[in-house]
Design a protein around this nucleic acid. Sequence first.
RNA 1: GCCAGGAUGUUGAAACUGGUAGACAAGCACGACUCAAAAUCGUGUGGAAGGAAUUCCAUGAGGGUUCGAUUCCCUCUCCUGGCACCA
Length: 774
Amino acid sequence: MDHKQIEKKWSQKWKDEGVYQADLKKPKKKYYNLMMFPYPSAEGLHVGNMYAFTGADVHGRFKAMQGYEVFEPIGLDGFGIHSENYAIKIGKHPMDQAKVSEKHFYEQLSRIGNRFNWDNRLETYDPEYYRWTQWLFTQMFNHGLAYRKKAQVNWCPSCKTVLADEQVESGLCERCKTAVEKRENEQWFFKITQYAQRLLDNIEKINWPEKIKISQRNWIGRKEGINITYKIKDSKETVTVFTTRPDTNFGATFVVLGVEHELVAELLNDQFSSTNFQKKQIKEYVEKTLKKSDIDRLAEGREKTGVFTGLDAINDLTKKNMPIFVTDFVLGNVGTGAVVGVPGHDKRDFEFAKEFKLEVIRVVVGADGDKSEITKLEQVQENEGKMVNSGFLDGMEIHEATEKIMDYMEDQGTGKRVVTYRLRDWCISRQRYWGPPIPMIYCEKCAKRFTPGVKKSPTPGVGMAGWYPEENLPVVLPYLKNFKPTDDGKPPLERAEKSWLFTKCPKCKGKAKRETDVSDTFLDSSWYFLRYSSIDKVGPCHANKVRPFGEDLPWDTDITNKFLPVDAYIGGAEHAVLHLLYSRFVWMALQDWGFLDKKLGIEPFPFLYGHGLIIKDGAKMSKSKGNIVNPDEYMDKYGADALRLYLMFIGPYDQGGDFKDTGIRGMSRFLARVEKLVDCITPGVKKSPTPGVELLARLRHKTIKRVTEAVEKFKYNVAIAAMMEFVNGLEKMGTDKDSIKALILLLALFTPYMAEEWWSKIGEEFSVHQQAWP
RNA sequence: GCCAGGAUGUUGAAACUGGUAGACAAGCACGACUCAAAAUCGUGUGGAAGGAAUUCCAUGAGGGUUCGAUUCCCUCUCCUGGCACCA
């Protein structure tokens, strides 16, 4: 039999007998072995996906042989821009294309030989799944974590969609590399910032790669500092700035506002006595800046521009006037949107001061001992040092001075210690077609009746004027003939049939309109691991109620309490700040609402393993580069086992590597040699020579030990090398049945098909998947 | 600019808490089998010198600790990834 027949025979048998189907009701020792599900376009899996899944499966098989009830589900993250764009490209409707893709993907996935729990698969575009994604949205709303606001958002003119901050890479769309523009739009947001501190604190308590933990810490970006409020000269108004370096405040000589700052709007509204000329200048500058995309700003480099407002802030420490400017280098959504300029000790401030001929005062002397006036950029001193020209702070180290001045400012009432985060709220809205409709209904009548302050809601956001969650889920995504996005950025669902677009208001029963945005794909994937173990075990849902614990949830509480959290989550490190942060947030929220038992632990993925990336010719595999390697042809030629073995042999699993197909023949050769050894002891076949039994046993035990240690550390390449040495030894010394049995069991992690075949060949009755680790 | 990770033969790589560097493969060369080729099997394979045993030099560069360093410490170079006008 050739490998194709063998693969067919065993995968059929595994499926028919459900041998890998975990007992979810009464697990002995459970092990939830999860791999990040693929985000497919119709081109199918590439070798990189196969690498990821194989490595994760080796881990699962190892745990299973150690006696765990391993649950290893798979599904498709099929909603989203990726699939939609592909459908547009090939001129098909995403809903039709999804069925084609699904079939192809599952075929490929079943070929690679993983011990998947096929009965528990899910697809995010299945209404049975996304009804619960929508439910999650309504719960966010009901608990005050979803809100809508007009916001400046990142707009990709090529994908014609809004992007989350996380999806913008230095001003470019992460998907198509087009320069991202800014647009004002009404958007739905989730208050992930409310969880910033917990998301940060819990990082210390999880077993994740240091690299990913650091990314998350940086992304959350906690900063301790102080908000300083300055009086504005000849006015009752004040301006508040955020700074982490109040120690240098004796050297503060100006204040800069971002263009979004409220003071700027007030200036233009004649609330100050600025001249008309100034107002005109400010207006022009603000308009010009708002039009600029991030990439324009980056292209301009550090060139500082701005406009004087005609106002002065008063530095309480020095009693000096600090002119207030509007500038584009201050970001509206960082800190208070206003910054105090200390040109001697901040490079940007120095550049700005030079441009506008503002005073530069040295207040810190650093390690180089330079006490002279600061006239060059290189002299700007941003590091450790001792205070000078700073009144009561003189002579102190900067850290001591920071504490002292903060105490002082709080005493004086001019400052207040604050903690800020870089993390922003999660923008959920997408003006696209291929996603779950956001299950909200807007009633104009109710909105008009709503008087702010009268109907006080327990949590902010709840009771937003006129908005109600849909009561009966799912809100099924209608089949739109023309689903394509347009340049005006209007959601495609605006073009849906009136019967879909308009519905009854849940409150006043009047005519109301549906939300036409769909949700971000990352919402689909933020909770899927909770769904797998409960597929087909839960009933319909109604969204507009906060349900008592355990009733009508997206999951079966019993099973979930037994199988969650995820014991090993295996995936690519590229999801370090997107998916992996959102999932943690959703888990925490669900626990806070009482939907998830506290005993499941504070994190969904206590252990995360980040595998490496398979590249081709030094570059990431991508359609645009045309360097996709399709695993099918290799599986056809050498068999799934040989490919699995080869991929795992390239290097340590966390390292990835460059795919070259020369090495794969070596794996075929190796498998053929094992086959020969197996034949030596197959009943009825020629007798093997009699080897030194003791010597063999020693070699065997050494090999088992080496393989075990290597597999535990995910060093699959070393494990395979050890098995190869073992085979070399057996060929030289001759072999016995115990050694062959051990070899097959070790190999079963990597070559599940051949292992089954050999196991039956040597006359063992039970199949390999039931055997214990040797 | 900041943070993290890395650099070992022709190539992928190995080396446990400091102890024979290069396991295991790939490639290449030669040989066996064959009319021939493929496949398979055998031998060799870091560099230099030598017929050989052997000797010297080699883990990005330089320095240090040590009886002994790929491994620990310092400086530098180059790659790879993340963040970036973040106050």
